[in-house]
Amino acid sequence: MLRFILTRLGLVIPTFLGITFLTFLLIRLVPGDPIEVRVGERGIAPERLAELRREMGLDQPLWQQFLDYVGNVLSGDLGTSLVTRNSVLSEFATLFPATLELAFCAMLFSVLIGLPAGVLAAVKRGSWFDHGVMGLSLTGYSMPIFWWGLLLILFFSVQLGLTPVSGRLDLLYYIEPVTGFMLIDTLLVGETDAFWSALRHLILPTIVLGTIPLAVVARMTRSAMLEVLSEDYIRTARAKGLPQRRVIGLHALRNALIPVVTVIGLQVGTLLGGAILTETIFSWPGVGKWLIESINRRDYPALQGGVLLIATAVIAVNLIVDLLYGVFNPRIRHAR
């Protein structure tokens, strides 16, 4: 087991280097540097431009900038934002809990609905329910997030007045962040009304962000279940006279879960990527919205640091998923 973890951690190093290099390069390929996007029609005196470029380290050759950056990252310094002049790490730490809270709720939403829907669809293969789930999940998978978010806002918030349009908490409340997770912080200070407000603010963004993972989980569960259901041991179980619930719930589902868990792990990346759009629509103060602004302002350190930290989160989740395989399927544990 330890060896497995160490091998996986070893693989992480080139992944990190690759990500750092790509982010570093891609944002620099976008026309306009941080100074140019700020200057506008007014233009800038060449001496002042040179001075600013020197201050920001942009006068160095690219390879030098890259090496400096990697060196700093290795010593734990992600730099300071060119715009706010705060440390990238502290900005990320302030905003990440909001993203995590939303992503967690979206994941919960997609698994709680997607898993049973997929199982049922497989068990009732060919029924109207199966067709319905498959049709809806295809629609969900192809849903443009921006459009979907606005549609839900217009219907649930504007027409029906059931949910707030955007934000994280009603403006009546001001909760000092402790953990940064609004649901927890409101309870910590004993504000149940604020807790309900936070929960209501989560509903629409959760649905929007959870739609694609929900579709993926439902489809994957269905196909994995179908495969397992045709196995000999299921026939044996049935022949033994086991009740249907036990056959499906114990024998089939547990084996079908392995690919599903993989897919859920992969969806973490989708969730954090999807958060960029969802957060922008719902004015959700998380890292997604922050990254968009960093791109617009060509805030290189913020963007590079943000992407690197998100990548760390995704890699960590995938590692956990790999370890979870063993829990679901002892064969994998032995094979390694």
Binding site: L150, I153, L154, S157, V158, G161, P164, V165, S166, G167, L171, T280, I281, F282, S283, P285, K289, I292
Partner: peptide, 16 residues
């Protein structure tokens, strides 16, 4: 802070 103009408009309509 509400970056999207369509969402700002929705918030105006609901009185937020």
């Amino acid at each position: 802070i509400t970056p999207d103009a369509a969402v700002r408009y929705a918030k105006m309509k609901t009185g937020e």
